[in-house]
């Protein structure tokens, strides 16, 4: 994370220049398309396309590493649980049963293993585009483009202002927590049982709320004093007009969605199992 606490990575790729709202639409289209299928071939194509786009954006891997590993671990745990709890779930989708790995109380079959693989590929497919959106979208430009899409500017600005003050509040939270620990209300191991530690942690709520309310009061005063919310519209300093490539991307999104729906409706089976 940068010092500012938001995830935006400065850069000048195609995706950095792309309109924030267009990127949001791309993300939504991508998600919907992914969830329509349970087909490893389609995921393979989309995943490659996604990784290609991510490489184009030239975000350093270092910045993405945390999110990447979190999702990997999540997917792994998810897979293990499916295999352990329902070792023959795959059969309900294919109708066949090919026993593979005995686990004592039951046997994991090949169908389930392939299902787990497909499911993991599904989650991974979402990852590159999500990262693209998170790491290349400047919060202010995003607010401006949301407003352009017809979202009221007060709502759009709320998004931006949240990004602005989250790091401040996190810092505040840490400070308060530390002062509490100094007084003996510890929250780490060795400071008492879990119940005790949870209770100590909950004590932070009051001062944190106090300081947030204070913060909100001064922020809203500052905004009032500079005329926020009086007009029915506002202009955006950071706003950018939609470029030709944005329009192309929008068109591509529509095509992707239509293709996905057609594919789903006329051709694809529910679960692709080649064996």
């Amino acid at each position: 994370m940068s010092k500012a606490g938001n995830l935006f990575v400065e850069g000048d790729s195609l995706f950095h220049r792309m309109d924030g709202a267009v990127k949001l639409i791309l993300l939504l289209t991508w998600t919907v398309s992914t969830f329509l299928f349970l087909d490893l071939r389609i995921f393979a194509v989309m995943l490659s396309a996604g990784i290609g786009m991510l490489l184009l954006s030239r975000i350093p891997f270092r910045r993405m590493a945390l999110l990447f590993w979190v999702l990997m671990v999540f997917t792994l745990i998810n897979s293990i649980f499916i295999l352990i709890i329902t070792p023959r779930f795959g059969s309900t989708l294919t109708g066949s049963n090919t026993p593979l790995i005995p686990v004592g109380y039951d046997t994991i079959n090949a169908e389930t293993l392939f299902y787990v693989l497909t499911l993991s590929a599904k989650y991974l497919t979402l990852l590159p585009v999500t990262m693209l959106f998170i790491f290349t979208t400047h919060p202010s430009r995003f607010a401006a483009s949301l407003n352009k899409l017809g979202v009221h500017y007060k709502m759009a600005y709320a998004v931006s202002i949240a990004f602005r003050y989250i790091p401040d509040l996190t810092q505040e939270f840490k400070n308060i927590l530390n002062a509490m620990q100094m007084r003996g209300m510890g929250i780490s191991r060795g400071d008492g049982n879990l119940w005790r530690r949870m209770k100590n942690l909950s004590l932070v709520v009051v001062p944190l709320l106090q300081s947030s309310l204070q913060h909100i009061e001064s922020v809203s005063n500052a905004m009032d004093l500079r005329g926020f919310g009086t007009g029915s519209k506002r202009t955006w300093y950071m706003g950018m007009p939609m470029s030709r490539s944005d329009k192309w991307m929008l068109l591509l999104c529509v095509l992707l969605l239509v293709a996905a729906i057609l594919l789903k409706g006329f051709w694809a089976e529910k679960f692709w199992y080649p064996f």
């Binding site: 400047h138 931006s160 001064s218 926020f228 300093y237 950071m238």
Partner: peptide, 14 residues
Amino acid sequence: AQFVGQTVGEDTAF
């Protein structure tokens, strides 16, 4: 608290 923009330019323009 009164710095509501994400950048210096944006805050000036608020």
